[in-house]
Simulated scan of single mutants.
Amino acid sequence: MTRRILLLRHAMPDASPNSYPDAWPLSDDGAAAASQLCGRLPANGVLASSPELKARQTLEHATGRHADVVVDSRFAEVRRPDEPFDVGFRDRRFAWIVGQPHPIHELWETPEAAASRFQAGIDAIDGESVVVASHGMVLTAWLIAIDVVRPGIEAGRFWSTLSLPDLVEVPVP
């Protein structure tokens, strides 16, 4: 049996500094973009999602399926306590991806821990075809860990070019 793993990065949320990112719903444009993925995802695959609302909604819009989504916290974004919602957030995240230390990263989950957590979630799913709705940083950390994306600047380029939403098929030996 050849396993097929598709990673679905969430669509554009309706971001608000007044609520936590895990509660952000999709924006109208994000929901429309996720809906355009219908037909590109396997009809009978196992669907798994981060518990964050934007990831679950992306998967639901992209597949038209709601009831049979496995919600697993191991697919949540990198844990970043008290990250400021300001103009510097992309730079801090890029630095984390490429391995350039920043003082705030001391409070963040390490790339290795994030990738290990994500791998444990993948390992817990039985199925020939799996779709995981998740987030750009944790997806990139996992792809580095399984040698699909090279660390450093290549990982930064990969993460920087991910769309909202985006679909990445993982080569499985």
Rank of each mutant, 00 (worst) to 15 (best):
Val69Phe: 11
Tyr20Ile: 04
Leu162Gln: 14
Ala145Glu: 07
Pro111Arg: 07
His66Thr: 15
Ala95Gln: 09
Ala34Cys: 11
Glu106Trp: 00
Leu41Trp: 02
Ser19Ile: 12
Ala115Ser: 11
Glu128Val: 09
Trp24Asp: 01
Arg40Val: 04
Ala145Gln: 11
Leu107Met: 02
Ala113Asp: 15
Glu52Trp: 15
Val132Met: 04
Val78Gly: 01
Val98Glu: 03
Ala120Gly: 13
Val148Gly: 01
Thr58Val: 11
Arg93Gly: 03
Ala113Asn: 14
Gly30His: 05
Leu164Lys: 06
Ser49Cys: 00
Asp14Gly: 05
Pro171Asn: 13
Asp28Trp: 00
Asp82Thr: 08
Glu154Asp: 15
Glu109Asp: 05
Ala145Phe: 10
Pro84Glu: 12
Gly64Arg: 09
Arg3Ile: 01
Arg90Lys: 13
Leu7Pro: 00
Glu128Ala: 14
Arg93Lys: 07
Ile125Glu: 05
Asp166Ile: 06
Ser19Gln: 14
Ile125Gln: 13
Ala114Tyr: 01
Asp72Met: 12
Ala23Ser: 15
Leu6Glu: 02
Lys54Trp: 02
Arg4Asn: 06
His66Ile: 15
Ile97Ala: 00
Ala141Arg: 06
Gly136Met: 05
Glu169Trp: 10
Gly45Ala: 15
Tyr20Phe: 07
Met137Cys: 13
Ala155Cys: 13
Val131Lys: 03
Gln36Gly: 08
Ile104Pro: 00
Pro25Ser: 03
